[in-house]
């Protein structure tokens, strides 16, 4: 644990970082907010660990993922403190809220868009043959900037397709709900994401987590059966949790294809549009038939006179 004010001097980069506060800690290290002295005190995030190989391994993955999608954290540099330990890498500091916090001030259209954005990010990760695995609210950030972009953090769980998932959170784990195996594949991430969005509105009761698999499944299905077609993401959530949607790309397409029926106002608009269409159609047939009649009459007059 580093105290605020601790200075880390990079042995290789010669850059200096001043620790401000701890942002979180995980299975292999801690993340701090820090300033980069040489770069006009720019704010950055530091991942710090006493194990050099953990840092090296994550750095390699982070660089790979950043090229897949801008939704993943962008890496800056990897280095060691000149005094030996700790080892660290530097990444961009994301100023954002976790999805559940952000959701309090966001409407359904925004949440639908974010759902799609997370799906797209996962889709580009899947193209590289990796699953994110540890999809949970803490790892899904929404930027505070006006665009409120979707970002994914903590790549500690990222696993190649086909391997066993090594880092997960039971609440958002496919296996825990009896919805499939704990092998890393595209659908594993989709189920995690669907559960996060489902539980935003309907968190599972605390005692349910201790109860046997059958009652967990029963509760989940009862929640699913109560979902309405609006907002748009709901039909995709159900599709994922019923294993009908197994790839992120399909999920994105389904989300875009599902009709916007979020308010009754929208429904009224489409009805009145239909009425107007009906009237123009009648007008068209009237014009066509009267034109035909006029032409016929003209021919009759012409033939009679000749």
């Amino acid at each position: 644990m580093l105290k605020p004010g601790t200075v880390l001097r990079g042995k290789w980069s010669q850059q200096e970082f001043v620790v401000q506060q701890r942002l979180g800690s995980g299975a292999n290290g801690e993340v701090y907010q820090a300033t980069q002295t040489g770069k006009g005190n720019a704010l950055v995030a530091l991942k710090v660990s006493a194990v050099s190989a953990d840092i090296a391994s994550e750095w390699r993955l982070l660089s790979d993922l950043a090229s897949a999608s801008p939704a993943f954290v962008q890496p800056v540099l990897m280095d060691d403190d000149a005094l030996g330990k700790p080892f660290f890498y530097v990444m961009e500091l994301i100023s954002g809220d976790t999805l559940p916090v952000a959701a309090k001030s966001l409407g359904d259209p925004d949440l639908d868009r974010l759902f799609g954005d997370y799906l797209s990010a996962l889709s580009s990760l899947h193209e590289k043959g990796y699953a994110f695995c540890d999809v949970k609210p803490e790892n899904l950030l929404v930027e505070r900037k006006s665009e409120r972009r979707a970002r994914l953090v903590d790549i500690g769980g990222v696993t190649s397709f086909g391997r066993s998932v090594r880092q997960y959170t039971p609440t958002y784990d496919r296996g825990f709900w009896g919805l499939g195996s704990r092998t890393a594949d595209a659908a594993y991430d989709l189920v995690g994401l669907a559960l996060v969005f489902l539980f935003l509105r309907q968190p599972p009761p605390a005692d349910l987590m201790q109860s046997p698999l059958e009652s967990r499944r029963k509760w989940l299905y009862s929640i699913l059966s109560q979902l309405t077609p609006a907002p748009r993401r709901n039909s995709v959530l159900v599709g994922i949790l019923e294993s009908r949607i197994r790839s992120a790309e399909t999920a994105v397409q389904m989300l875009q294809a599902s009709p916007a029926v979020s308010t009754s106002g929208a429904a009224r608009v489409s009805v009145s549009q239909a009425e107007r269409m009906d009237w123009t159609e009648r007008f068209m047939w009237f014009s066509v038939s009267s034109a035909t009649a006029a032409t016929l009459a003209a021919w009759v007059v012409l033939l009679k006179s000749s």
């Binding site: 290789w12 050099s52 190989a53 090296a56 391994s57 750095w59 390699r60 540099l77 990897m78 280095d79 060691d80 080892f87 391997r163």
Partner: peptide, 22 residues
């Protein structure tokens, strides 16, 4: 030691470790 290697080489060593682990 691995820790004395420059960062880029260390990342390559970690790849070997990940492979062995599987």
């Amino acid at each position: 030691t691995t820790e004395e290697l420059p960062p880029e080489e260390r990342a390559r060593v970690s790849q070997v470790v990940d492979k062995l682990q599987e």
